[in-house]
Every structure is written in C-alpha cells, then in structure tokens.
C-alpha cells in the first residue's frame, strides 16, 4: 500500500506542477500583444506612464511580424516577432498623449494598429495648441484642387533663369505650383519669361524651401510608409490600391454619409494637374490630419511637423526636378 500511496503522490504532484507552474508564472503586468488590425490590433491599446519615469513594455506578436514605434519621439522602433518577447523601456520627458503604432506593413489595415500612451506629469504646458497651417489659411483640404495650367515639359530648377525674388515659407506653403506660376506672370520684371522658364522658376523657388538631406528623409518616409498604397512612383497604383477601392465599395453599402469620404484609391500624382494644383499647406494638412475615412492614415500623431514638410517637399519631385 505504501507503493500505491507513493504512486498517487507522484501522479498528483506531477500533474499539479504541470498545471500550476505556468499559472504561477503568468506575466504581471501582462504582455503587450500585437495582432493584425482585423484581429483587434494592439492589446491593450492604452498604456499609462508618468513623465520622467521609465515605462517598461514587454511586447509580443500573436500572428505575424509587427513593429513597435512611438510617434513624435526619438524612440527607435523595434521589431515585434511572433511568439517572442521584446522588451523596451520608454521615458517621456513631457506629459501628453503619445501614439504607438505598428512599423511593419501587415496588411491593408496596417495603419489602424495604433494605441496611446497617456503620460501624466505636473508641468503641463498651458495654452491652446496652434491650429495647423491649412486651417489658418482656410484651405478645404477635401475639396478638389485641379491645376488650371500644367507645364508642357517637366519643370527643372537647374534650368531656371536667375532672378532676385523674395519668396518666404508662407508664400511657398499657401499657393500651389500652378497658382504660383500664374501669379509669377504678373510679377514685374518677369513678363519676358517663356511659360517653360516660368515653370522652371517655380521649381527653383520650391528647391529653396528644402535641402538634399530633407528630401532624402522625405523619400525614405515615402518609400517606407506611403508607397504600399500610393505606388513607388506616386501613381496611386501601390500594392494595396485595389484593395482600398474594393474596401471602399464594401464600406459604402454599410455607411450612410458622404461617399467620397470612404476608402478609396490614392490619387495619381503622375498626373501634373493633380499634384501641381495642390499647395504645400494642403498636402501637409492631408498628412497631418489623414483622410478621415479614405484609408489615408493620420500622420500628425506619428511624425513631427518638420518631417511632414520633408515628405511634402519630396512629393513635388514627382512632377518637378530640383536637387
């Protein structure tokens, strides 16, 4: 009978250990799970932290390869691998609401994988935030904005006539290249320029507002985050463009409201009438705010204003040559 008792203790002990060990060792706090947006996105999708205090996050993915980035900070994004755990420590100097997001393309709804970190702290910066430039300028960024005229040939900053001309950032931001081209025609001293020369001058003025380094950063962001929908050449023919269009049609059946605000294919920026009719403030506004349902994500929570202006500067190189 003593052998039997021993055997029973052995079975029960081993069984209890097999079940109890993982239960006892459960993670506290729980892991931050990355899942496809269709499967619910981040879980949890709200984190809390104190300004100046380190926040340790242990990340894992439940399905495919994801990434973890925190918008508008200099935190370097990390990969979140399926079934593995990646640990990161974040420290926020300023209180506020920060967005974390997936940095690895994981499908049509990749950009919907977002969560927020609420950082509390004593030194809350007072005062209302400044409205974005497009709002200050009163630009309706959802209205069509075709260029009235388009260049016969691709404008080239290097071929532009050398003219002394004041051209501020505010002037740059407010008008589309086509509008600027028109207004340059009335400018004293420029009456003798041919149409092509005037376009080249527009390109040169655009070039003044940026730098090769800024363009390079804009291009990097575009390739990484935009090209999958907008296409590598901005023609609106990216990998997911068709999916966006069909998702839009599907959404339209279920949603009342303005159908032009539903998921849709991106514009064709290889068409000069579309891109050259858009002012920098308009493009920056689109980036900042997102498409509000078109499928275009809101980038304001992710990139700094400076980075967004770099992207805008890069976009115009799809229609104009400037270094």
């Amino acid at each position: 009978m003593r052998a039997e008792t021993l055997a029973r203790l052995l079975v029960l002990g081993l069984a209890a250990a097999a079940v109890g060990f993982p239960l006892a060792a459960r993670q506290r706090p729980p892991l931050l799970h990355a899942r496809l947006a269709e499967q619910g996105g981040w879980a949890p999708d709200v984190l809390r932290a104190e300004a100046g205090q380190p926040l340790t996050v242990r990340l894992t993915s439940d399905d495919v390869l994801h990434g973890f980035g925190v918008g508008r900070t200099d935190f370097e994004a990390v990969l979140v691998e399926p079934g593995k755990v990646t640990e990161v420590t974040l420290t926020f100097d300023q209180p506020g609401i920060y967005t974390y997001y997936c940095t690895v393309w994981c499908g049509l709804n990749h950009w919907r994988m977002r969560g927020v970190i609420e950082v509390r702290g004593s030194d809350v910066q007072a005062g209302a935030p400044t409205p974005p430039l497009y709002a200050q300028l009163g630009i309706d960024i959802d209205a069509p904005h075709p260029a009235e005229t388009t260049p016969a040939e691709r404008p080239n900053a290097l071929a532009a006539p050398v003219v002394a001309l004041e051209f501020s950032f505010d002037q740059y931001a407010a008008a589309s290249p086509a509008q600027l081209w028109s207004s340059l025609g009335n400018q004293p001293g420029l009456e003798n320029l041919t149409d092509a020369q005037r376009w080249d001058l527009v390109a040169a003025l655009w070039a003044r507002q940026t730098s090769p380094a800024a363009l390079a950063e804009g291009e990097t962001i575009f390739r990484q985050d935009c090209a999958a929908c907008h296409g590598p050449q901005g023609a609106g023919d990216g990998l997911y463009a068709d999916d966006l269009a069909s998702a839009g049609q599907a959404a339209m059946q279920g949603l009342a409201g303005a159908p032009d605000m539903l998921m849709q294919s991106p514009p064709d920026w290889q068409d000069p009438a579309i891109l050259l009719g858009a002012s920098p403030a308009l493009l920056q506004g689109k980036l900042l705010r997102g498409g509000m349902g078109t499928g275009m994500p809101m980038w304001g929570a992710i990139y700094t204003d400076e980075q967004l202006w770099h992207v805008v500067a890069y976009l115009y190189t799809l229609q104009m040559d400037y270094p």
Binding site: V11, L14, A15, L23
Partner: peptide, 20 residues
C-alpha cells in the same frame, strides 16, 4: 506519469501560451 504531466502542460500551454 511523466507523460501525463507533459500532456497536461501541453493543454495549459496551448490555452495560455502564445497563439503562435
């Protein structure tokens, strides 16, 4: 008995562990 413990651990890890 050892395999039973393993079997139970398989069930627990299947339910609680990573879905990957």
């Amino acid at each position: 008995a050892l395999l039973l413990a393993g079997f139970l651990f398989v069930i627990v890890s299947g339910l609680l562990g990573t879905p990957v």
